[in-house]
Amino acid sequence: MVDADRTDPRPRVSIYNIANALTVLRIALVPVFVFALLQDDGAATSWRWIAAGVFALAIATDKLDGDLARKHGLVTDFGKIADPIADKALIGSALVGLSVVHLLPWWVTLVIMTRELGITLLRFLVIRHGVIPASRGGKAKTFVQSLAIWLYIMPVGGAVGTVRWWLMGAAIALTVVTGLDYVARAARLARGASAARADAAPNG
């Protein structure tokens, strides 16, 4: 009997790698960020700047861990699960925190979080049929969303206040449009898988 492990040319990737370490760091930064943002109900300028810095650092790890994992072959099952959890935890805590301190309307937080959680659930439901890759619209959504949130965290007004308002509007629009696109692609994937099974079934 042939040992499958010996015939598999792919090397085993340890979960103890730099990409996963950055993902874990991003998760660990979430409570630090929330603590800084909520100080004095969001009115403490120095703490808001600290929160903005922590958020920026966490967002930077999001891009870096993905780049490192793909470039150096460090993709692991742990990373596939932990990375989206870290993303949702960071963005979700930022949106909720901003709404709690009355810097962002609650309806904005509800719209974005409903989309994010809904798509996450849908991804698990259709994963047996295949993986739907991130679209350009999805990547644009993430970038605009993160930038808008970061500007809302910073204790500044004037022109920046106007820019962040428009950016958040664009983020909401992209959130809804890309969410609908993902639902449509998931439906096509499920239909294609059902058709393939029907074709493969023996004729009675």
Rank of each mutant, 00 (worst) to 15 (best):
I91N: 04
G169D: 03
G169W: 00
P155E: 12
M1K: 06
V183W: 09
A200D: 14
R136S: 05
Q39C: 00
I172K: 04
P31I: 13
A186L: 02
K139N: 05
G192C: 09
F35W: 10
V96G: 00
G179V: 09
A184S: 09
G97T: 12
V126N: 06
A51R: 02
R136I: 10
D77F: 00
D199T: 13
F33S: 02
R136V: 09
A56D: 08
K141M: 15
R26C: 06
L147K: 05
L37K: 02
F35I: 06
S99T: 13
L122T: 05
R191G: 02
L74S: 04
I85P: 03
K88H: 01
S99P: 03
D5W: 12
H129F: 10
A58D: 04
L25D: 03
R128K: 15
I132P: 03
T23R: 00
R191E: 15
W165Q: 13
L29D: 01
F55A: 03
R164N: 08
H129C: 05
V163E: 05
R136W: 15
T109Q: 00
A196Y: 00
A196M: 00
G137Y: 09
W49R: 06
V144P: 07
V111F: 07
G73A: 14
D41I: 03
D199M: 14
L117E: 01
A193P: 06
A4M: 15
G192L: 08
K71D: 11
R128I: 01
L37H: 04
A19W: 08
L64P: 06
G73S: 14
L125V: 10
F35H: 06
G179R: 01
Y182I: 04
V13T: 11
Q39S: 02
A196H: 00
W106H: 04
L103V: 02
H129V: 00
V96H: 06
P11V: 07
A44P: 01
V111H: 08
A170K: 07
S14I: 10
A134F: 07
A4K: 15
A200R: 08
I91H: 10
A140G: 05
S146Y: 00
T45S: 13
L22Q: 08
A19T: 06
V126D: 03
W165K: 11
H72G: 00
Y16C: 01
W107C: 12
F33W: 07
T61P: 09
S93E: 13
Q145Y: 01
H72C: 05
L104D: 11
